[in-house]
């Protein structure tokens, strides 16, 4: 099978990402190592949302919940002196999957506006829970003094080592989502998105498939949360803020909904744009101070005029939903 232009672009981007630590060191700009690591962590989260939003048609407005669960799993265990990374990350992934199972089991019974509202409401519930637990910092959050420990294997305190861990996980997640949506399981999910009634007519009940996708997406996003709290070394309920869920959705749309590489492009585009608006010295101070105003305008314009996102540019005039 000849790889499509988009696959080649994805490989090229991943290769470029692999070169970032060397380049950052050569130009003595460690800031970029940090920025691109952050981009890749959000790309993992966006890829998980893309699985249910882009392929499954489930407009979850509460995906930041799993980012939070993953972060809290690591932060809370670290707070109680348990620093074993394997255990922390396993709890992050397992805990997120479990929460996704509960939220999904209730939410997926509904559809349309109700689904959007109920996923939002569940995330708000977790957000307020995070805010009100004083033991773990309440709304101020707490510092995570010691990162996840992988004795003898890898030291996350080394920025470059951590960077490559995130890059490897990103590649695995993108591959996993790609394989998943092109499997029989993924076919059912996509079929149920385009026509629920016909999917039932040919003998599939969409509910368990949707729920399974929802749980897998939650688990992957939990991993992203575990990475994120190691990135910031700070645990805060803001990870679960509803605006975070909106940002994740925007990343998926911006990159190109329902495409393999879209979440990576979207995360990169949004975070780089935010970074430029906030700090680029060529822009006037007025832009830096009110950068969200300009972000809002970009958001509205993208939704109104560039529905297929960045990946849509590569796709050309051909239209097709498969990734």
């Amino acid at each position: 099978m000849k790889p499509s232009p988009r696959t080649l672009v994805l490989f090229a981007v991943l290769a470029l990402l692999a070169a970032v630590p060397t380049l950052a060191a050569a130009f003595n700009q460690p800031f970029y190592l940090d920025l691109f690591r952050r981009i890749m962590i959000f790309a993992i989260a966006a890829a998980s949302l893309n699985l249910i939003l882009g392929y499954g048609g489930m407009v979850s407005f509460g995906h930041a919940a799993y980012l939070g669960i993953g972060a809290y799993a690591v932060g809370v265990l670290a707070h109680h002196g348990i620093h074993n990374g394997w255990l922390q990350w396993a709890v992050a992934i397992g805990g997120s999957a479990l929460v996704a199972l509960v939220i999904g089991a209730v939410s997926i019974r509904t559809s349309g506006i109700y689904f959007i509202m109920i996923t939002l409401a569940f995330t708000q519930m977790l957000y307020y829970m995070g805010i009100s637990i004083e033991e773990y910092g309440g709304d101020d959050g707490i510092r995570v003094a010691k990162l996840s420990q992988f004795e003898g294997l890898i030291d996350l305190a080394n920025p470059t080592a951590f960077y490559y861990v995130v890059l490897a996980l990103l590649a695995v997640v993108l591959l996993l989502v790609h394989r998943l949506v092109n499997s029989r399981f993924g076919m059912v999910i996509r079929a149920a998105k385009s026509n629920d009634a016909r999917t039932r007519a040919i003998g599939f009940s969409p509910y368990p498939y949707r729920l399974a996708a929802f749980v897998i997406a939650g688990a992957i996003c939990g991993l992203a949360g575990a990475l994120l709290v190691n990135q910031t070394a700070y645990l805060t309920p803001e990870f679960m803020n509803w605006t975070r869920s909106g940002e994740l959705m925007f990343m998926v749309i911006l990159g190109g909904i329902g495409t393999t590489a879209g979440p990576l492009f979207g995360a990169a585009a949004l975070l780089l744009l935010e970074d430029l608006l906030q700090g680029w010295s060529l822009l006037p101070k007025l832009v830096h101070n009110f950068w969200q105003f300009y972000l809002g305008i970009v958001l509205v314009l993208v939704v109104l005029f560039a529905k297929r996102g960045l990946a849509g540019l590569l796709r050309g005039s051909k239209d097709g939903a498969d990734g």
């Binding site: 939003l53 407009v59 009110f290 969200q292 972000l295 958001l299």
Partner: peptide, 30 residues
């Protein structure tokens, strides 16, 4: 803004009005 959104799907509406929130909040802050 909103008039053009009536025919769009919920996802577009959520994102576009999310953008409007950012615009309104920042205008007030200005």
């Amino acid at each position: 803004a909103l008039r053009t959104l009536y025919e769009r799907d919920h996802l577009d509406q959520v994102l576009a009005t999310f953008g409007l929130i950012l615009i309104f909040n920042e205008l007030i802050a200005m």
